[in-house]
Design a binder for these strands. Structure first.
Lengths: 195, 195, 195, 195
DNA sequence: GATGAATGAGCGTTCATTCAT
DNA sequence: AATGAATGAACGCTCATTCAT
């Protein structure tokens, strides 16, 4: 019921909305969206299910609100990149920023990575997909060899891999992130030079 | 004289089990595991839900049976590779065979890719993860630079990316698969030479 | 110099109670009592649900308040008729006035007609029923033939029918009302003469 | 473990569907459709709510199934009447048959009468309304005086009134029904002769 | 004169699963 | 080899209502 103001601090007393988002994200990332019930979220917050409905109209609304926070930086990145010349340096900057955005919104990106099927069926699914395609388009070396096209996509996937997979192996996530960024940058550089 | 002929009333034989698996895989890949109900599967097959329970003890059993078919080739690949010297050529062969195995079991790989959270929580989850780590181990350049380690993981992810993502963009899947394989091979080659 | 002007912030004054009643009646008549939620009423008024509770103790209280306005004329009619001799002319006057009362409170009468079950279970249900029986008693030709008794009840129903049903068919409601009144009057006249 | 050791017969056999319909109709007529919950119906039958869903797809489906049984005779009546000349005798026969149909399906007709708003919003609502209009059309004296049109509608309403209202007053329902039929017949006769 | 935040009860519905036949 | 009938648990959601502010 409270209007989701675009920005500005919500009445701090009513931090319940925020708490719902936090716990929900945690549980969604841990167990998946459909396996997480509203009862579970409510219990964790020590409120009733009905209280959730005061703050969000549906279960899907909760996850959508999480996506909104996280995709704004990507939208800005895309807007910025669209206005730049499609040089190698621009592409590198895109990867750099994307990597940072991912690090900042890690839990939700993890959720997206591990629940692609769910994400796709959600109402934001289309948007997410479109954005990803747009990013690929920004990196892609048009009319290049097929292998080079793959390299551009792979660069993006490498960033994801760096965050998701390697975090289980190595110690410092930040170091790993930079290594992944390096590899990704190598990939697009190679694709760029082939053209 | 006993009737040796097998011309009795056409018994559709034990193909129902197979049909369940086919439809289930199709639906799981399309909508995810938890969003696919046994009712839906049964309806598609024009049998009752109870019939599914004649062939499989639980819903999870159905998906486990699908995994079994598909992971056998990977187990064999791992067994083979473990017996080889860890040369670059061996690694290339591993990627080659893995790529082929993925192509052969595409729908289930797609399911795994898009439902990682679900897969993880399934009873086969641990096995799948272990196998994947094992594969990474086979490709990895131990004690190399972090970036090279990333490259090895990225090689595997590139194969997935090639299958999942690019199939929406390009025409011929086989051509795309080979391009992805090429890029993946490049990645491990580079990692290997750095060492 | 004190501002004598009345151009301050428009205080809608105590008209909110009235507005609640208006919207509530509209919605109750349109969708029924139980299908109309307080949330809906509040939204239509652009206030919160809690505001409704400032003006009415319960949901039922809202509808009771509506009934009160509308049944007062009927109570007066009954009181008047009880003091008259039970002549044909009195009966005619009862029908005439009842028809007018219905026309004046049309929406609520429509609600009553279409939600008899609900009305019956409401706390005013008994009162409404009693009043109706009382009216019938006023019109009835005691100890007459059964058919004549039916005619008296039917006269009342005809008035309702005229308002509810025919309004969908014909143009001018007032004309229809008078026609229904004519038929109803005929019915009691006939019953009266038979006796 | 619901072995409540109640003395009931172990094999309820295939009569459950029927039992659901019976109890549902009883409760719907008594308390209205929306005030009757599936829990209540199930409890009365000593089964679980889920059992209802084996037999009916939705709550609305239950009531629709009840309507189907009851409106078939009306459809047949309309079909028959449409094929007859629109004489007074035909009209009388329509009323006669309609009155009988109502008596046969009394509980549902009572439900319809007392829950018109609900009925209207149900998926069968439109059908019911259409049928009623069709009946009126069959009885109506086209281009006659407005009062005569009212008489025809009133004839139908009188039948309803006879069943619903008078049953509370008098003893023998069958006798009352015939009296109502007589009055209704009078009404259309009068309308017919005026023309 | 009204809101923000929440509750407790209940609803219709769906699910995986069972078992006698 | 499969069905008919049912269950128990849970789910997402809505409702009328309360109360401190």
């Amino acid at each position: 019921m409270p209007t989701s103001s675009s920005s500005g601090p919500q009445h701090r007393r009513g931090n319940t909305r925020q708490r719902i988002q936090d716990i929900a994200l945690e549980l969604f990332a841990e167990q998946g969206y459909e396996k997480t019930s509203l009862r579970e979220i409510a219990e964790r917050l020590d409120v009733t299910k009905a209280a959730l409905y005061y703050h969000f109209k549906t279960k899907e609304d909760i996850i959508i609100s999480l996506f909104e926070d996280v995709t704004r930086p990507i939208d800005e990145l895309i807007a910025w990149a669209d206005a730049q010349p499609r040089t190698l340096e621009t592409k590198r900057e895109v990867l750099r920023r994307y990597s940072e955005a991912m690090a900042a919104g890690a839990p939700l990106y993890r959720f997206m990575q591990e629940n692609q099927a769910t994400t796709r069926e959600l109402s934001i699914g289309h948007t997410v997909k479109t954005r990803l395609f747009h990013l690929v388009e920004l990196l892609r070396t048009q009319d290049g060899a097929l292998a080079d096209q793959v390299r551009c996509v792979s660069a993006l996937f490498t960033l994801h891999a760096g965050m998701m997979f390697l975090q289980h192996i190595d110690g410092d996530p930040e170091e790993t992130r930079r290594a992944a960024l390096e590899v990704a940058t190598d990939l697009i550089t190679q694709a760029h030079h082939d053209a």
